[in-house]
Design a binder for these strands. Sequence first.
DNA 1: TTGAAAGCGATACCAC
DNA 2: GTGGTATCGCTTTCAA
Lengths: 340, 340
Amino acid sequence: MAKRSVSIYDIAKLAGVSTATVSNVLNSKGSYSEKTRDLVLRIAREQGYVANFAAKSLREASTKTIALLTPDVSNDFFSTLVLKVEGLLRAAGYASYICNTANDDEREDEYVRGLISKQVDGIVYIGGTTRVAIHAAADLPVVHIDHTGPLGMTREVYVGNDMPQVSYDMTSTLFARGCQNVALVSVSASFYRTVEHDQAAGYYRYLQEHGIRLDKNLVLEGAHRQTSLIEAAQLVSECLDAGYSFDGVVALGDRVALGVVNALKERGVAVGRDVRVIGMDDSIYSRISSPAISTVRRNTSQMAERGVEALLGLLRGEGSAEAHIMVPHEVIERETTLGE
Amino acid sequence: MAKRSVSIYDIAKLAGVSTATVSNVLNSKGSYSEKTRDLVLRIAREQGYVANFAAKSLREASTKTIALLTPDVSNDFFSTLVLKVEGLLRAAGYASYICNTANDDEREDEYVRGLISKQVDGIVYIGGTTRVAIHAAADLPVVHIDHTGPLGMTREVYVGNDMPQVSYDMTSTLFARGCQNVALVSVSASFYRTVEHDQAAGYYRYLQEHGIRLDKNLVLEGAHRQTSLIEAAQLVSECLDAGYSFDGVVALGDRVALGVVNALKERGVAVGRDVRVIGMDDSIYSRISSPAISTVRRNTSQMAERGVEALLGLLRGEGSAEAHIMVPHEVIERETTLGE
DNA sequence: TTGAAAGCGATACCAC
DNA sequence: GTGGTATCGCTTTCAA
């Protein structure tokens, strides 16, 4: 729609030079006299010249744009990651195209198709899961940050934590604080669980290694993929209503943990004493809760850095050194596990 | 980067027709025989044809893309708005380009310049404030949703709440619950306050109308534009340390309110009884707080709907019927004002 | 119904 | 140092 703007042609005519020269000056390429440069730049400024991105992209077959696909920007953990990645890409001269897939495969397909059409130079999946690898056809470099998706692309790198180890450490933290019956609460649907990214695996492993009997009644799994807070609260309530009891909760996600804490508080349970809770992500939810929720810091800064680094490498055409980059995590104990 | 993909030319050659025909078929325009259509569509599918967006945009001088400028996607209120606007635009056939300005004018300038270059068809400002109207040159339709910016564009619409009335109602709610000394806490820098969007105005007006003396010591204003939570907590602490006291707090924002509540709780104040607090936005912060924070629901759905509606009108070339669209708000009382 | 060809705006090669 | 021109992929007259 935007009104026909001044083109390189107009500038060339006004300056009495060719478009080639204007292009050179504007891009600091080739050679030209200082005089021409000043003239061209002055006129360009006067005319309010702005390069036509579509033309440039068409010609160069590159958009200097990276698509950021995330399931939910309103989730603090993801949006933090998105912002960090965006900042790093910007510094490297790339624009970011943020896409919200809402964990909807169909929508994601549609998006990616559009992105290929839009000629993005690469894709960064942030968080969540993806089951279809539609971008295969376009041969785009792809980086997955804390994201589970189909493998097998050629130019592809995964960045994330050792999730089984994360849940192992969470479980271990609770037992170290004296818990005897530790429940597991998660609201991710089962397809989130792939062999290598099974978030719950560490919980099972810990129990096994320590000869603790697994009580299936304490493994609470929500089916939905949204509003984890409310769903987690419900799961906990139902479990307690059914007469089961526990003194520790491994919550796969801070939102989930917050839901658990709220549900327990409502029942008059002294969270941090009677029941200890640990979440995951070190997001705003764990920090603003009262009592403050113990959690696992998963190092979003490092994820973003390593991810962008890897992507830039792929864009430069370098074969990726590592296909799987593991970022260290760290347990942060707060009131919900430290309560005396 | 993406490997040279199949163009409309390749399809034309394979199908033994002209590019014009292929284009027609692909866009369901013009006329062609059913046979040609089937042939072209089949080949296009077989070859995995994806239209080159750059070429299309260049030719059509339109990108069917709207830029969404927001100061902070990690803020629940804004991200909700962004998501809703995006959904509505998608339904109308427009893609959204989400930009995070971080409340940084320079960055915003840079962004907008890039957007003009990228040929977006319109701009939606969501939240925050803007002091420079750089898009003026491009004559783009602009919609402001809960956003304060320079006026004077021709194709421009504002959508938002009657902010002075919002703070008036907040103040009124506290006095109705028996408060006598009501403080005002805000962390927005003063330039956020323009004549028409002065968020604090209603507080002053209420006091004035009810003959209540304004105590300057109870007007707490933070200078920063981020981490409002911590800053609000500090402001409250400092105020109390200085020996001033209050039994009600109008917090301009839920994050601010949460900071206030946290600070009060830490000092052993019974929030909702000794001191009543009301926030604004009905964001996740007010809902997950304990005690739950009373707030003002500002009706993001309606804002998004009316905003998109207005934008689509402008894009269709219709003169906007209304330049200022006011969306109703609603006080939601929760524990922090209802405590007995 | 179909096709030839112009043109959107920028870049880059190759002469001069 | 500078300029003519082909080209990127697509849409769109206008003729056939």
